[in-house]
Design a protein around this nucleic acid. Sequence first.
DNA 1: ATCGATAGGTAGCATGGCTAGGCATGGCAC
DNA 2: GTGCCATGCCTAGCCATGCTACCTATCGAT
Lengths: 113, 113
Amino acid sequence: MAPTPKSDLLQGTLDLLILKTLSLDALHGYAIAQRIAASSRALLQVPQGSLYPALHRLENKGWLAAEWDQTETGREAKFYTLTRKGRLQLELEVADWKRLSEGIGLILAGAEE
Amino acid sequence: MAPTPKSDLLQGTLDLLILKTLSLDALHGYAIAQRIAASSRALLQVPQGSLYPALHRLENKGWLAAEWDQTETGREAKFYTLTRKGRLQLELEVADWKRLSEGIGLILAGAEE
DNA sequence: ATCGATAGGTAGCATGGCTAGGCATGGCAC
DNA sequence: GTGCCATGCCTAGCCATGCTACCTATCGAT
């Protein structure tokens, strides 16, 4: 499949990815990772050991709410939804990302002054 | 000037910025920070407490070489140049950055599957 | 004389993702 | 029927990296 799956992403982007993904659908953790991989055409892959701690972190910050429910296949899973604070945070992180990627883009383009 | 100068950038991008900046010119540390700010139209700003340790780190990894010289204004300053290894590393980091920013772009665009 | 800009540096902290494990269940192939 | 893979959740401990907050020194302009 991908020539270099290359697991690690940059610090700080994981929250953004999770928040954005959950802004479209309430999902359980495992499905979040799948959705991120699918939506990014496998460019980004989130290892479980990064995902679950991140979900707990975001929940502690009040950006996500969790509840146990059943998946379509009848299994128990913890579903996460964005809170109002989470939506605000998502907007902030999107803005930060745009600033950063624009800045880096300028520099990589070799813009002088 | 910028509404939210917002100091901190994402972890992992600093090396890329330094390497790219030095790929165009040999510069001393202080000038690197200025160049990054100028090239990014002040979107990105590197605090000294991040910059100097990073330069030492990159030098230890063999990606930069340093030597003391004089600035145009006659001051002593430590000028850094990219090594061959540094150029290779730059290519890697540029590729990683593209993968990441493309991936995030897809997700923010709401691409499904 | 003093202040801002130029130029370099350090110590210590906090964050946050990774590796590497573990646990449990369900469905499918053999 | 049993063994394995996918699904689903989790934690401990490490380590890399950038940040804040300092310090030092020189130079030019006020």
